[in-house]
């Protein structure tokens, strides 16, 4: 039972960020490969504030401030660069964030991570974690279903399909993409606010490049832009990832096997979706 709840909680941690990233990358086709960099910066802002002040509200505020600033800067950068250049730069930004986390020992404790993260007073059992994170996930699914079905969803679709034509209809790329970045940032806060409290530790290994690959795999496998596809693939892939812990293999073998397996899943997912992942622009 505890294992099922644990898997549910881990999947719930992913849901908001998957939905946010699905909107930006899956639906908007914005080559943002630094989502885990923002995730890491927000997680450290929340955890450091929580550990040093013990206040959940202050931690939430710090996380939101970090998310909004980071997202606004990334959005601004995306307007200045070509898509592939932006993709490479966001990977660079992710690695810079990791380098700062690993080297600023006095603040982040470097490679050791931050142990003993305090829990909010009402978050004391696995059942409560499961309930609260499920509520957050449901809230986020509802919010994104509303956003994607509304005018904003249609605008981001139009921009992904043909930016010039969308502009001629009065759709501002800067405004739409800026808010998509901000939504991803806020989703990141919803994803990581409870995670260090649940694990009781914040570790930099959780924000390495394979974490981003896992996020991208969820989007591609679940059909880019599809809300329910993203939700379903989150649960399936988290279940698979957590279930692999029970495979009777030595850790030195299990780690590489997991990398190969997830690499193959990503490749197969891209192969299956090769015509829809980055569709060709329509022409007259």
């Amino acid at each position: 039972m505890d294992y099922a709840l644990h898997t549910l909680i881990v999947a719930n941690f992913f849901i908001p960020v998957v939905l946010g990233y699905n909107l930006l990358f899956g639906r908007g086709k914005v080559f943002h490969f630094g989502a885990v960099g923002t995730w890491a910066a927000v997680a450290y802002a929340i955890t450091i504030t929580l550990v040093s002040t013990g206040s959940g509200f202050l931690a939430l505020g710090a996380g939101l401030a970090m998310a909004i600033v980071a997202s606004a800067v990334l959005a601004w950068l995306s307007f200045r660069l070509e898509p592939d250049g932006f993709g490479v730069m966001t990977i660079a930004v992710h690695l810079v964030v990791l380098a700062v986390i690993l080297n600023w020992n006095s603040l982040t404790r470097g490679a050791l991570g931050i142990p003993g993260v305090p829990q909010l007073s009402f978050m004391k059992s696995i059942e409560v974690f499961a309930l609260v994170t499920t509520m957050v996930s449901l809230l986020w699914i509802g919010l994104f279903a509303w956003i994607q079905r509304g005018a904003f969803g249609r605008k981001i679709d139009a921009l992904a399909e043909h930016e010039w034509h969308a502009k001629s209809l009065g759709i501002s790329r800067i405004r739409v993409h800026f808010w998509a970045f901000i939504l991803l940032g806020i989703s990141t806060v919803a994803s990581v606010f409870f995670q260090p409290q649940y694990l009781r530790i914040l570790h930099p290994n959780d924000f390495q490049f394979p974490s981003f690959v896992f996020l991208m795999m969820i989007i591609v496998a679940g059909k880019p832009g599809s809300l329910w596809g993203g939700v379903l693939s989150t649960f399936l892939l988290v279940f698979l990832r957590e279930g692999l812990r029970f495979v009777p293999l030595a850790p030195s073998v299990l780690g590489p096997v997991r990398l190969i397996l997830f690499g193959l899943i990503l490749f197969i997912a891209v192969y299956v979706r090769r015509d829809t992942l980055f569709p060709k622009q329509r022409s007259i």
Partner: peptide, 15 residues
């Protein structure tokens, strides 16, 4: 699409 290999080579890098 010239951006597709960007994703497939991420998969390749993991493998």
């Amino acid at each position: 699409h010239r951006f597709l290999p960007l994703v497939t080579t991420i998969a390749l890098s993991m493998i």
